[in-house]
Design a protein around this nucleic acid. Structure first.
Lengths: 331, 331
DNA sequence: TCATCGTGAGGAACCGGTTCCACACCCGAG
DNA sequence: CTCGGGTGTGGAACCGGTTCCTCACGATGA
């Protein structure tokens, strides 16, 4: 279907009695145009209701002004917040964000990215769940790419990551102070970089007398809900979710089972999504620098859009937020 | 900057020893192409790493395959969920979503829309906060538009709205049963259609003996937080937030003030965002059909993208969800 | 054997802008 | 009076595809 746009630059040119080059110059506020002609063209454009075709501009300018953002799950407030951060920054530079939501299905990611790449000047991948070779293959897309919360293979892409080690040690110290000597980690998606990070940070942070279990869960509310009982079965007195959603899902299950938090069992998470403080008890969690993630991602990508020079990595740091969901070991 | 794409359709044509028309036919799987040539072109394309320019395709096809979505605030899980609903549906028809977040600033909306319209085949406006004349002016954008949760002026655009009347009456009955005879509504953004709807539904649903106050708040967590004290000052025994975020914000403030919910004061909201059940007490709320909003929006928009015929309105219905934040009047 | 038809490929127009280049014009300086 | 340079405009190429139109060719039926 060839949708015929009624009013193109040619219509305006004709109406104003000038060439289309001149109309283009007027619309782009190029200097050295006769003021009389400027007003004549402006008038004609307004009268006809002319609005330049973004698509045509994209083609001739060789850029779209769009940055594609891939997120694992938009329902996760973490990513919604990161996305807001990106949009806010990008917008100041005249870019908009094209969002693809992979719904926590790693297979979806590549499909989305292939599409995104064809419409955008650059890509930001938030916590991609794809495998390392797949990630490396993205270099072929021939588009600037920045990773958020995932270390790039062989430093292939600029990335903004977080160092949770310190905060996790704080968490372990906090739990140890409450007398917890057996913890159960509710594991996230296997290819998520955060998963490996968090798990290894936990392993290296616990005291030798502490037992650390791991039960596979996932990244969404339901995953935590489903994994809670398996975690209970380990006998651990504290559950640590891969992220806050998993932790909240587990809390919900515990409450259904009539188990008090933190009375009978403590729970902690990762991310510090906005709603972690509204749960009662509030959720103890390792807070990610969410808005900064977005800001920094843009700052890495933005120069990269104009020249291919930049290729840096930025590491932010997490911090522990203690709320009511963790307490003294009871049994 | 004229970014020279290394490999265009011409490169492939040359490499395969055919014309660019033929390459185009092969890439689009047009019938009636010699199988030998097909493989020759395929090979050449693969060897050169050819990927068609989406921008060029957009221009010559006369469509972008992008639908623009405007949301007041992406941090509001309501809109994140609606957006997921839209994306999921649109994707099946080969469309992607370009998101603009107005950050609850009505002035931003028009600016965003002007930009969005130039890149997309259609627009979905979620709970736009702009004024009625502004909304009507959008017809000039000359792009199919569908409204979510806002009734269109003079039936100008197809829309999917919700009828909360019934559910609000349920809420009022519920509160009346608990002996609450003075309620305070924490009002939302003045131009939000939901604001007018909810306020008038409340007014028409309360019993004659019940007093109904209104304190201006907003649509975000902080707004509820800030408005809580003013609401308390009315002497009402139950607060009803414009949405769940406002309600949650108010709850947080009440807790800071050492006021028990629902012990000393009850709180209810609108929307039923995912996290409303994880707060403790869980939030009593008038639930919106969130995923359906997205689905229906796409179903209204989709036929409208091809022909200009459709122009319908779809009304969904809300329902009351009772949780722990409402209880018997105490004082 | 010749007219006809279907198949498959190339050429060119087109989508709607941006921008390079050439040129006409006017001014002031030599 | 002529030459040089700056200013303002139109024409044409270009961005990278899609698609219409034309035509050559081989097979088929009369």
């Amino acid at each position: 279907m060839r949708r015929t746009r009624q009013v193109t630059i040619l219509s305006v040119a004709a109406a104003a009695g000038v060439s289309k080059s001149t109309v283009s110059r007027v619309m782009n506020e190029t200097p050295n145009v006769d003021p009389q002609i400027v007003t004549r063209v402006r008038d004609a454009a307004a009268r006809l209701g002319y609005r330049p075709s973004g698509t045509a501009q994209n083609l001739s300018r060789g850029r779209t002004g769009i940055v594609g953002v891939l997120v694992p799950d938009l329902a996760n407030p973490l990513f919604a917040t990161i996305l807001k951060g990106i949009s806010a920054e990008a917008e100041q530079d005249g870019y908009r964000t094209l969002v693809a939501d992979a719904n926590e299905q790693p297979g979806e990611e590549l499909r989305h990215l292939n599409e995104l790449a064809r419409q955008s000047d650059g890509l930001i991948l938030c916590g991609p769940r794809m495998s390392t070779p797949e990630l490396a293959g993205l270099a072929e897309l021939d588009v600037p790419i920045v990773l958020v919360n995932r270390k790039p293979d062989r430093n292939l892409f600029p990335s903004v990551t977080v160092d949770s080690q310190e905060a996790v040690m704080d968490l372990c110290r906090h739990l140890d102070g409450f007398g917890h000597t057996s913890l159960c980690y509710l594991g996230g998606p296997s290819h998520a970089a955060a998963e490996a990070d968090r798990w290894s940070a936990l392993q290296s942070s616990i005291r030798s007398r502490t037992k650390l279990y791991r039960v596979p869960a996932g990244a969404m509310l339901d995953d935590g809900h489903a994994a809670a009982e398996a975690a209970l079965a380990t006998g651990a007195t504290c559950l640590i979710g891969f992220n806050d959603l998993v932790a909240l899902g587990a809390v919900a299950r515990l409450q259904e089972l009539g188990i008090a938090v933190p009375g009978q069992i403590s729970v902690a998470g990762f991310d510090d999504i906005v709603y972690a403080r509204f749960t009662l008890p509030g959720l103890t969690t390792v807070a990610m620098p969410q808005t900064e993630f977005g800001q920094e991602a843009w700052r890495l990508l933005s120069p990269y859009l104009h020249s291919r020079k930049t290729r840096r990595t930025r590491t932010l740091s997490a911090h522990l937020v203690i709320r009511g969901s963790t307490g003294p070991r009871r049994n």
